[in-house]
Nucleic acid binder design. Structure first.
Lengths: 148, 148
DNA sequence: TATTGTTATACTCTATAACTATA
DNA sequence: TATAGTTATAGAGTATAACAATA
């Protein structure tokens, strides 16, 4: 088990940064009357058309939580339920053009905010940071559980 | 305005990492029947005894949201309202021994999880990451608004 | 009058348990 | 029977608006 006697500054810094990022995303989402989870929903649907249960797995939520989430998004015309061709019990969830557009706007705004945050670093350091973060994220993806 | 033509991998990576960290913290907190915001509350009270309005500013919440939050924490014996000596209208919020202990346990568990995540990096790279993150966090602290 | 905090109300998000409809 | 999804219900978290008590 490596990584003992960790510099406490790293853990604190990473959490502080993650709170800042989440706060930023929440603020931007709220400016468009969305929550973070709704943004995640739209993001997942960018390149998928999953059934409710699959969506629940992606978001790590109970299926019953999905019903309301999708209801509210559907009521706003951001997603739609499409009857499954394979299974008469199920629906697939599809993002609408409106949802896709909104998702792109929010992503762009969030990216701009993050660019400001990391803008304190010179370009070469940003690249290095990107590499380190990518390694950690790759480690997450390769870990026992992982379906972010 | 610097930081244009950003590597999109950095923004995505940072958000993915922040979702992972928040998810980890939420899971650990839930194992102790707490939410992230309750953990933040206890963390803020570690070295402060603020009035409700100050606490609201720290957490970036409306004062009315604080009432319920503190109610629930108080009901569990994690914090207590102390009448303000200066102002008959107000109370100061103080963490109890029980709240402090719980907060420490959760922090330790969270730190251990983060250590695992960054454990994919060799020690020298972890140090470098710590430095980069510290610079960004310092930039946040120095920015126009900031009261994390 | 202004400020501190609570209460009333409403909505989102989440879970558990019970249910419906299809497989 | 088993599975996909919804509904019923409950509770946390949040905000806005109205209120009480104190300054």
């Amino acid at each position: 088990m490596p990584a003992k006697h960790q510099d406490p500054g790293l853990v604190d810094g990473l959490f502080q940064l993650s709170f800042k990022l989440q706060g930023t995303l929440a603020r931007i989402a709220a400016e468009h009357d969305l929550s973070i989870v709704q943004v995640r929903l739209l993001g997942i649907l960018r390149d998928r058309e999953p059934a409710m249960l699959q969506l629940a797995r992606y978001l790590e939520l109970e299926k019953s939580s999905l019903s309301g989430l999708v209801d509210r998004a559907e009521k706003r015309g951001l997603v739609e339920r499409v009857p499954s061709p394979d299974d008469g019990r199920g629906s697939n969830i599809r993002v609408t053009a409106r949802g896709r557009k909104l998702s792109r706007v929010i992503e762009a705004e969030a990216a701009a905010e993050v660019a400001k945050l990391v803008g304190v670093l010179p370009s070469s350091e940003r690249e290095r940071l990107g590499g380190l973060v990518a390694q950690i994220v790759a480690g997450i993806a390769g870990a026992p559980d992982s379906r972010l």
